[in-house]
């Protein structure tokens, strides 16, 4: 009969809607339930808590550098000489893979603070080496200049500058 067929069809679509709604709700619930299991692997609050390292600059003579650890990574703190500053500024307009002015990379020209991790694949570059008077990464041959900019080699970017601030003339806080 047309009526019963119609009723049957209506019943089927009501049933299908019930199944669809329940299934969708169940799937949404499962996804929401899965999230904490994924998110718990993200850095925890204590890791994220801004950790700072204070560096005493008074023991670093001109033309030398120290390496400190910040958030588990090495940070180069270099007391640049006049020559190094001049060379860095002179090359501001050179052919740079990652163009950046030296003045944009330092707060005070005589102090260069950079994360000592090669932007290629993460090795620690060696200071006072390479063809540009700065750093050289022995892993795949990247050369960085006296401003830490990539000049030759496979690294795509200049050495990264962390957040830092001078507390006074002899102390800088990184992070």
């Amino acid at each position: 009969m047309a009526t019963t067929q119609g009723e049957a069809a209506a019943g089927r679509s009501r049933r299908d809607f019930l199944y669809l709604a329940t299934g969708a709700l169940g799937a949404a619930g499962a996804a929401a339930a899965a999230w904490p299991f994924v998110d718990q692997m993200n850095p925890s609050a204590d890791v994220l808590a801004l950790s700072s390292t204070e560096v005493d600059l008074s023991g670093i003579p001109v033309g030398s550098a120290i390496t400190v650890v910040w958030r588990g990574k090495p940070v180069f703190v270099r007391h640049r000489s006049e020559d190094e500053i001049a060379a860095a500024q002179r090359d501001d307009n050179a052919d740079l893979k990652d163009p950046q002015r030296d003045a944009d990379r330092v707060q005070r020209p005589e102090w260069l603070v950079m994360i000592g991790v090669c932007t290629h694949l993460g090795c620690v570059p060696v200071g006072e080496s390479g063809d540009f008077g700065g750093w050289f990464c022995p892993c795949h041959g990247s050369h960085y200049d006296t401003s830490g900019r990539i000049r030759r080699g496979p690294a795509p970017e200049n050495l990264w500058i962390p957040e830092y601030a001078f507390i006074d003339d002899a102390t800088v806080r990184i992070g």
Binding site: R15, L18, Y19, A21, T22, L25, G26, G29, A32
Partner: peptide, 16 residues
């Protein structure tokens, strides 16, 4: 709240 709604729906699915 979500579970109460879902379980209620499941109850009706089961009855059906």
């Amino acid at each position: 709240s979500f579970l109460v709604v879902l379980t209620t729906l499941l109850f009706f699915v089961m009855r059906r």
